[in-house]
Amino acid sequence: MREIDVALITEAIKDMCIEVNYDLSDDMKNAMKKASENEESENGKKILGQLMENLEIAKSDMIPICQDTGMAVVFLDIGQDVHLTGGDLTEAVNEGVRRGYTEGYLRKSVVSDPIERVNTKDNTPAVLHINIIPGDKVNIRVAPKGFGSENMSRVFMRKPAEGLDGIRDSIITAVKDAGPNACPPMVVGVGVGGTFEKAALMAKEALTREVGICSDVAWAADLEKEMLLEINGSGIGPGGLGGKITALAVNINTYPTHIAGLPVAVNICCHVNRHIKKTI
């Protein structure tokens, strides 16, 4: 049994919340750079130019990349040989978010109740997903999610007979509806299979996969490439003002499902696709 004090998790999450809101991961930065080289439309080039400049200013002047610094989504993969000590794990995660958003000058965008809508003033609680894995390590992923794009996300319960076409239609419908609202160029996370909630969770997790790495399921990898081409042929373009680059990546995660179903979840993310990992 390896003992890990939850205070270490608090500290890590605090730092990760701050870092990821000021500096995108390298995979995203490279994808943005490639996009601005490949865009052909005048509007598109102009918007991508502003977005590249925005990333530089964010880092050099310590101004968050986007004012919507997100609701903090945290994935913890906890090794089964780990004994967590020093307090309540959920509270430790929330404390990390609280400190990160306060000390990091990040926006507090969380309300305590969906109808009463009173701001919690420290961006807590986080949305926490815990997985138990073999080993004696804790993997932490933090992925703050902005709601301009979150609001355009969908779950479709398809019929098995719809097959690949059902998945294609789900992705394209969600992307077209999102259009300029989701701050394109987007990253599209897709979950196929499982149950209703498993599909949604896979779609979210797909957004934390590095851009440029394809699915290890052959048909899903092919579909990722095909969908990216089709989305970029839609003409929505950067900022929704027309152009070639509407999405930077389509990431599809899959899971076994029921004989009667084909759940498809599409989690839309903007170009500020924040994800960061750390292992303790």
């Binding site: 977005l51 964010a58 002047d61 986007c66 900022g239 500020v272």
Partner: peptide
């Protein structure tokens, strides 16, 4: 429209 996500 201002460019979404260019907050800095």
């Amino acid at each position: 429209a201002a460019v979404g996500g260019a907050g800095a």
